[in-house]
Design a protein around this nucleic acid. Sequence first.
DNA 1: CCACGGTGGTAGA
DNA 2: TCTACCACCGTGG
Length: 167
Amino acid sequence: MVNTLLQAVIPTPDGPFLAIYSRAGLCALQFPGGSAPKPECLPKTYPPEVQSWHELTVASVREILSGRPSGPIPPLDLASATDFQRSVWAELRRIGPGQTRSYAEIAEAIGRPTAARAVGAACGANPIPLLIPCHRVLAANKKLGGFSGGLHWKRLLLSRERSWLGE
DNA sequence: CCACGGTGGTAGA
DNA sequence: TCTACCACCGTGG
């Protein structure tokens, strides 16, 4: 057993999200509607470390769902990611609520100006939506582009961020 | 290798 | 606008 994973539920007005933690930190976040977590995978008590991480996750998820900027987030476990993905995701985290960038702009920003399409793939591989805000990346024509979690979420998140900014 | 995308830009209808 | 087509690139098989 090299890497035990712990699941924890995040209750929100939009339904229960699911967080998954490793020893190193948060490694995945799932939208509501997936297969319900098996009870035996939801420990009665969590290690203190995980518990404090989860508090940060819950707060952050709720903030982002309401269109607000999020406070501190837990450590992210991106061990299984490629270097390219890590650089894309790091760049995504620089986009504030209500802001948007295009896939090409992200590619440009990480020094791979012709890799816009690969950036799209990296966004699709993002295991931690919301905290790594891939919903703020649009196509160059200012159109919506795609979203792994379902386009309705992307629309919803952007619309809430815009309205929080006062539009 | 090869195929497949959350792309982007161009050309024509 | 919408469609067709093509160059591009990181990933996974």
